[in-house]
């Protein structure tokens, strides 16, 4: 009898854990689109928003009047520990966004992105408009990371081991930079993308080489350049050096602000167009929407494409949510509240 009760309890517990996990989408807004809520000290309507129903309803989270450029979470916390990259530095919440603490001081402003080392969450990188910063003690002390010149950077990601590179990758005005856990300085691409606004890595399915019978995965690195289109490398980060991997046709030197992908294909967005490309197809065959888009960020979740627009909020299947917000970043995480 005891065994049955134990087994039933375990089953219930397991089942509840499985069902409690769900996808939470975060939208970072730098302002609303009203007159005066733009540039400099203006921050009305800005902040962090979350949705638990794939973008249909949104809830404002944390501080009002704060330009929220991006966010990240500690994956192992399942949504409990969040970081917010804002105009006045980095904020952290340890209770799913109910309360926030400013981790940085006067030296760090215009934090455009934040990335947590998921193996060691005390290590956090920040991309700011004045250059990159890092903490190794969970935000108690921060150090400027020299070597990015000019220093403006707007994207930083933490790349997992499975990408073939374990460390941080930085998208900067001056190019693409990366720093592994053992590096003491930045490495950078030579002759590759500049004005890098977005970086994504896609890790392909496990395959087997028919001749050697060895298992392998293809890893695609994407870099969106606000100067001249989308760059893709299958040769790791070093593959961005030189221009041979750049996909620009038929879009010439159109600026691209964001890229996202799933197993079916990818989306690239920018000020002038948003393009949908099927997996494996050449960019020449993309479906392109050349509206006045101002697509700054995107997400692909199942069959749902989500676009974050500057001034028009979040677009899902031609419906607009948070309708007048300037959405800078969209992210999604599996959470367990």
């Amino acid at each position: 009898m005891t065994r049955v009760i134990f087994a039933l309890t375990l089953l219930v517990l397991l089942a509840s854990t499985v069902h409690a996990q769900h996808l939470r989408i975060f939208a970072c807004a730098i302002a609303n689109d009203s007159t005066g809520a733009f540039l400099g000290g203006s921050s009305n309507g800005s902040g962090l928003y979350q949705s638990d129903d794939t973008g249909k309803t949104w809830k404002h989270l944390g501080w009002d009047n704060i330009k929220c450029y991006s966010m990240d979470e500690v994956n192992s916390s399942k949504g409990r520990i969040l970081y917010e990259a804002t105009g006045l530095g980095i904020l952290r919440s340890t209770d799913y966004g109910a309360h926030w603490k400013q981790l940085t001081d006067w030296r760090i402003s215009e934090a455009m992105d934040v990335a947590v080392n998921q193996k060691n969450p005390n290590e956090i990188y920040v991309a700011t408009a004045h250059g990159p910063w890092r903490t190794e003690d969970g935000g108690k002390t921060w150090n400027y990371l020299a070597g990015v010149d000019p220093p403006y950077c707007s994207r930083v990601i933490y790349a997992p081991d499975s990408s073939g590179f374990a460390g941080f990758v930085l998208g900067a005005e001056s190019g693409l930079y990366w720093r592994s856990e053992t590096d003491t300085g930045w490495q950078s691409s030579v002759g590759g993308p500049v004005d890098v606004r977005d970086i994504k890595v896609r890790i392909g399915k496990l395959r087997t080489d028919e001749r050697t019978h060895k298992n392998y995965r293809i890893v695609w690195w994407f870099a969106a350049s606000a100067e001249d289109g989308i760059y893709i490398s299958r040769d790791g980060l070093n593959g961005f050096s030189g221009r041979r991997h750049k996909y620009r046709e038929p879009r010439g030197s159109n600026p691209i602000w964001c890229v996202c992908q799933d197993e079916d294909g990818d989306i690239t967005g920018g000020p002038n167009e948003v393009a949908y490309t099927q997996y494996g197809s050449d960019y020449a065959n993309s479906t392109i929407d050349r509206q006045d888009t101002d697509v700054a960020c995107c997400l692909m979740i199942g069959n749902t494409n989500i676009l974050g627009r500057l001034g028009e909020g979040v677009e899902i299947a031609h419906h607009f949510y948070l309708p007048d917000r300037q959405i800078w970043t969209l992210k999604s995480f599996l959470i367990t509240p």
Binding site: I30, D33, S34, T35, G36, A37, F38, L39, G40, S42, Y69, E110, M112, A129, Y152, S154, A226, P255, W257, P271, D294, A296, L310, G311
Partner: peptide
């Protein structure tokens, strides 16, 4: 300013 230059130019008339 840190935002996208082309977008700022589009929208700046609201503020300045």
């Amino acid at each position: 300013f840190p935002e996208y230059p082309s977008f700022m130019l589009e929208r700046i008339t609201g503020t300045k």
